[in-house]
Write a protein that binds this DNA or RNA. Structure first.
Lengths: 75, 75
DNA sequence: TCCAGACTATAACATGTGCGATAGCGGCTG
DNA sequence: CAGCCGCTATCGCACATGTTATAGTCTGGA
């Protein structure tokens, strides 16, 4: 219950807010349920493979810095 | 253990064979694990929402009749 | 013939997800 | 004020998925 180490949550939340979406509408555009997005943001679970794909897709569709990118601050 | 009613398995298998893919390579192009594709084909589980999206996407990418289409033989 | 590799089938366990429900919060309105 | 509404947080349970491991089949090569 220590939730998740990697803060996907923060990144997902950032992305969501940049797109001016509610958890519900973001969930819909990603093809997952509202509860799932909520769990990501609050660190209870980490996105599945497929979910990650969708998230990155959403990023690219809106020309936004990759939220789920590992090699960050690669300078 | 009655497996699944709807034979997604057969349809997924058809699609896979039309594309000349192994379970492993199909899994990769769908963004899921090998075990998941295998479980679909053998009827142990049914694809999730997201998985269905990917499957239909794969169909369209290769201009193949929608495997996961409900309204089949619609005339 | 024996063996190795590719593909498939199945299993067990941990984790992610869908769905429904409940609760809290701020804002708005009667 | 009370009540509704949009949004968020959380829970519980059933089911889907990821990972790893084992075993079966088949085919080609030594």
């Amino acid at each position: 219950m220590t939730k998740t180490k990697d803060d996907f949550g923060a990144r997902v939340k950032e992305l969501r807010e940049q797109l001016h979406l509610t958890q519900e509408s973001m969930a819909e555009s990603l093809g997952v349920s509202f509860a799932t997005v909520n769990r990501w943001e609050n660190g209870w679970t980490a996105p599945s493979k497929l979910a990650l794909r969708q998230i990155e897709l959403l990023c690219k569709q809106h020309h936004i810095t990759p939220v789920t990118d590992d090699r960050r601050t690669a300078k």
